[in-house]
Write a protein that binds this DNA or RNA. Structure first.
Lengths: 377, 377
DNA sequence: TTGTAGGCGTTATCAA
DNA sequence: TTGATAACGCCTACAA
């Protein structure tokens, strides 16, 4: 019992009810679009809400109802343009449905991921969107209530209330590797992602399978793992390619390099420049994801496209379905990828006009501006 | 009164108290690190928490205490790498302090911004971080309680509980423009950002002042505004430069172009390629922000650096100060910028080695990986 | 269709 | 130092 009898700071639903001369329940009905409310009553209540400047406390509503209109979005790193697009896709869909999102960067750290998951549950989120999470089914089950709807990408989690989106990592990697093989490459190296990520092992698997299908043995000396960042790719490429420069180490150097993602591929490009290697002349290069940067570097990067924005939208749509309680939501959804052959793999000569054409997808994306150019003031 | 007497689904603080043989208040004291708790009692309570798998409801705590350990972060578009870095900076600082963040993309839409601000208040956030917001002081005051701590960048809002971070937009733009003038350019065009953004008008002002200081009149025909995206820059540049191609329109074409941000500058690069203009030969180009892409395009982009990650950290630190109740938080903080002369402005010849050197900041950034490369499995 | 009463899980007050 | 009890603001069940 506070000393001060009642600091009438906040306008409550009760106040609105009093002002409108109705019961609290009626106001609540209006707020929640209960169908059985007279238009007249509704108008009266709306007027009082305006008059008093009433604002619902989603906190209190959530405490009572168990629904907070809030979704936890867990990703490795918002700094990676891939996840920027994904999150935007999520946000666009979820905002339209009235949800707010908690953004959680795990920074590839399992401890931080767990802490965030825990916090999200404490905060009473209605659902979870997991991208590149590390927690497996068991770990997840221990952390979150079994009835919490989840949509997870690149996660081994399979559960009753979980939908898993499976990006075709293996297929995409095989596509890329096969393309390099068909271009005549025989020594194809791989820059792999963190081994804890399902996507990383999937892509490495695809690479390996493509090699073996072509009768070429998988050579561990040609594979290096690192964090999926520009810096990671740079250092890994230096490590991998550097030892062949200016010294005789028996093995011939690789003539092609397939990378876990575009960020690493661009890092490898920088490393090549430093080592004096030309792309695609000395080294053919293929990435994965098709982030915007892939189209802006020289040579323009050959890659495997994952439609990131659409991935975010899809995941969110699936989650909304689960939240709506439609029992028949798929527990597993495939997400296709597509090989985009451009300049860095050396498969074909690219004219300046063709490059411009290849950039069109950046200039017409779902997201960008529609506002016309204006005259200066 | 629910039908079911009490679905003992959730473990409550009460349950823990009972299990530990103490009062609810004591458990609460332990949870909130109240100093006056016996180590013995604390241990007993901790044990019960573990045993029952208790999880605090931040919702209920927030309802009662008015503090939710939650911050609203409002930005135009997470898809812009600039804001990716900013948000990461915010998150790193706020996570360490135990806060979670609501991510809100306004998409440069004032209506959406207002809706989000409203929602954030309803959700009981403890503070607000505003980047590139449109709401002015009055609009903000109408939307949020006067005692809500706010840190805002690029916003005209000034208030008791608000700290405004002022990026040196005018100075940076003047620096860039002066540099072009000193390189001998006389017809310098400008691709401006949305006029509702204070940063856009600031940068345009700096451009104008630099021109006038050099005795060159501001020519409205050389300024075009558009959305601050790659696509915006592309279309604006086509519009601005296109009319000079293959026709005689009296005025000589611009020889240099200063852009509101790097995304637009890169868009302009694409436009130039399409128009057959070389950079910096036919057109010198300068951007603003120094996002990663600026270092990865060819020619490497001259720009005005804003330390984005640090900006996010600074804003968050200031907000935390306000939240801690230190009354003496600055109401205004300047944020410096720095001209980074690289290749696209044509001021100097850049050797391949120099480019590698210029990329070092990408390979040593605050954010990136530290995990060493690992041998393949 | 609207009103009444009670509790969601926590923290704050005051007394012990 | 700890215990009992009353709110925080809203929604749900049931009655009217």
């Amino acid at each position: 019992m506070e000393r001060i009898p009642r600091r009438k700071q906040r306008v409550t639903l009760r106040d609105v009810a009093q002002h409108a001369g109705v019961s609290p329940k009626t106001v609540s009905n209006v707020l929640n679009d209960w169908p059985y409310v007279t238009d007249e009553t509704r108008a009266k209540v709306q007027a009082s809400i305006e008059a008093l400047g009433y604002r619902q406390s989603i906190l209190a509503a959530g405490l009572r109802s168990g629904r907070t209109k809030t979704i936890g979005v867990v990703i490795p790193d918002i700094t990676n343009p891939f996840f920027g697009q994904v999150v935007r896709g999520c946000e666009d869909v979820l905002y339209a449905a009235g949800y707010s999102i908690f953004l959680c960067n795990t920074n590839e750290d399992a401890v931080k991921e767990r802490a965030y998951l825990d916090s999200l549950v404490s905060r009473g989120v209605d659902g979870l969107l997991l991208f590149g999470a590390r927690a497996d089914s068991a770990a997840l089950a221990a952390l979150v209530p079994g009835d919490l709807p989840i949509v997870a990408e690149d996660s081994p989690a399979h559960d009753l209330n979980t939908t898993v989106i499976e990006i075709d990592n293996r297929g995409g990697a095989a596509l890329a590797t096969r393309h390099l093989l068909e271009s005549g490459h025989r020594r194809i190296a791989h820059l792999g992602g963190p081994s804890e990520r399902a996507a990383a092992t999937g892509r490495q698997e695809g690479y390996r399978q493509a090699l073996e299908s072509a009768g070429i043995g998988y050579d561990p000396a040609l594979v290096v793992r690192c964090r999926p960042t520009l810096r990671g790719g740079y250092h890994a490429a230096l490590h991998l390619l550097g030892r062949h420069i200016g010294q005789h180490i028996g093995e011939p150097p690789p003539t092609a390099l397939f990378c876990y993602n575009d960020l690493m591929a661009v890092g490898a490009m920088v490393a090549c420049r430093r080592l004096g290697l030309t792309i695609p002349g000395d080294l053919a290069l293929v990435g994965f994801d098709d982030i915007a940067i892939a189209s802006l570097v020289t040579p323009i990067l050959t890659t495997v496209r994952v439609q990131q924005y659409q991935l975010g939208r899809l995941a969110s749509d699936l989650l909304l379905q689960r939240l709506a309680g439609s029992g028949d939501v798929a527990s597993q959804v495939k997400f296709p990828v597509e090989l985009i052959v451009r300049g860095s793999c050396g498969a074909r000569q690219i004219s300046p006009e063709q490059i411009t054409g290849m950039l069109e997808h950046l200039l017409d994306s779902d997201l960008v501006d529609l506002e016309p150019c204006q005259a200066p003031p």
